[in-house]
Deep mutational scan, measured.
Amino acid sequence: MSIQHFRVALIPFFAAFCLPVFAHPETLVKVKDAEDQLGARVGYIELDLNSGKILESFRPEERFPMMSTFKVLLCGAVLSRVDAGQEQLGRRIHYSQNDLVEYSPVTEKHLTDGMTVRELCSAAITMSDNTAANLLLTTIGGPKELTAFLHNMGDHVTRLDRWEPELNEAIPNDERDTTMPAAMATTLRKLLTGELLTLASRQQLIDWMEADKVAGPLLRSALPAGWFIADKSGAGERGSRGIIAALGPDGKPSRIVVIYTTGSQATMDERNRQIAEIGASLIKHW
């Protein structure tokens, strides 16, 4: 067993022997301040990774656009098919120029040779490549099948209805392509620590998230040296922004954090800054 596999296998073990965790309302004060600064709703939840206990939450059962955070769930569904012998990570998928959609920095470079399922998941999570996500959605049967996968996990809230990039439209009061912070946090925890996926697939999923290259201005910008984070960000229309993450000190994750916002007129930089400040408060009061 590799060191990384050992780390993920012992996530519940280490967490069980940690000192009790206590909620700190100071972080919620910052979440509410972010709402004021952005002029928009902000949803927040913080779960203990081992027990699933909610440590703090704000608007945990209000719907927010998922945006690209759905790509972690998508690759979880792909990995479940791999575990069941219905898919192979090494299978190569070929596609054409007509398949390319807006923001496809990886797939646009491989029109000639195609990409493997493993490479597509890596591109979808680490670079948020939209064509990679659409190609992977095709392998599982489309958005409705991802929703069905989530329902089978016990998540009857999260739903995907459309493809990239239309799913980022974020129309107010439109339930399409949305989740709730509580539902997303619980589902992410199941994917990373539950028995739904094999140990190898859980490790692969967290490795992809740990290698995320496009979430630097968010929670990662607030992390002290030595902290662990595996995350996936999302951005959408109407001032929408979000991030889902597993993080913790001492090089291992111990909490799940989900943050979503929508309806702001603020710039992307300002949305990023507010999420980073929430992260800084979380870490300060850990």
Rank of each mutant, 00 (worst) to 15 (best):
His24Phe: 10
Glu26Gly: 15
Glu26Lys: 12
Val29Lys: 14
Lys30Val: 08
Val31Thr: 07
Asp33His: 07
Tyr44Arg: 00
Tyr44Asn: 00
Glu46Asp: 15
Ser51Asp: 15
Gly52Gln: 14
Ile54Gln: 14
Arg59Met: 04
Arg59Asn: 15
Glu61Gly: 09
Glu62Val: 08
Pro65Asp: 01
Ser68Arg: 00
Val78Ser: 03
Val82Glu: 08
Ala84Ile: 14
Gln86Ile: 10
Gln88Lys: 15
Ile93Leu: 06
His94Trp: 07
Leu100His: 05
Tyr103Ile: 05
Val106Gly: 15
Thr107Leu: 08
Thr107Trp: 00
Lys109Met: 08
Lys109Arg: 09
Lys109Pro: 07
Lys109Gly: 08
Leu111Cys: 07
Met115Gln: 08
Arg118Leu: 10
Arg118Lys: 14
Ala124Ile: 05
Ala124Ser: 11
Ala124Val: 15
Thr126Phe: 02
Met127Ala: 10
Asp129Val: 00
Asn130Lys: 02
Thr131Cys: 11
Leu135Trp: 03
Leu135Arg: 04
Thr138Glu: 15
Thr138Asn: 15
Ile140Lys: 03
Gly141Ala: 12
Lys144Arg: 08
Lys144Ser: 09
Glu145Gly: 11
Thr147Tyr: 03
His151Phe: 06
Met153Ala: 07
Gly154Cys: 06
Asp155Gln: 00
His156Tyr: 10
Thr158Glu: 01
Thr158Gln: 01
Arg162Thr: 11
Glu166His: 14
Ala170Pro: 13
Ala170Cys: 06
Ile171Asn: 15
Asn173Trp: 10
Glu175Cys: 11
Thr178Ser: 11
Thr179Trp: 00
Ala182Ser: 12
Ala185Trp: 00
Leu188Gly: 04
Arg189Thr: 07
Leu191Met: 12
Thr193Arg: 14
Gly194Ala: 09
Thr198Tyr: 07
Thr198Asn: 10
Ser201Tyr: 05
Ser201Ala: 11
Gln204Thr: 08
Gln204Met: 07
Leu205Tyr: 00
Ile206Val: 10
Trp208Met: 12
Glu210Asp: 15
Lys213Phe: 07
Ala215Cys: 05
Ala215Ser: 15
Gly216Cys: 13
Gly216Tyr: 06
Pro217Ile: 09
Pro217Phe: 07
Ser221His: 10
Leu223Cys: 05
Pro224Leu: 05
Gly226Phe: 14
Ala230Phe: 01
Ala235Val: 06
Gly236Trp: 01
Glu237Tyr: 09
Arg238Asn: 07
Gly239Lys: 00
Arg241Tyr: 03
Ala245Gln: 00
Ala246Asn: 13
Gly251Ile: 08
Lys252Val: 11
Pro253Tyr: 09
Ser254Ile: 07
Ser254Trp: 07
Arg255Thr: 05
Thr261Trp: 04
Thr267Ser: 10
Asp269Thr: 14
Asp269Leu: 13
Arg271Glu: 10
Asn272Gly: 14
Gln274Val: 10
Gln274Trp: 08
Ile275Gln: 03
Ile275Met: 15
Ala276Tyr: 07
Ser281Gln: 13
Ser281Pro: 04
Leu282His: 02
His285Met: 07
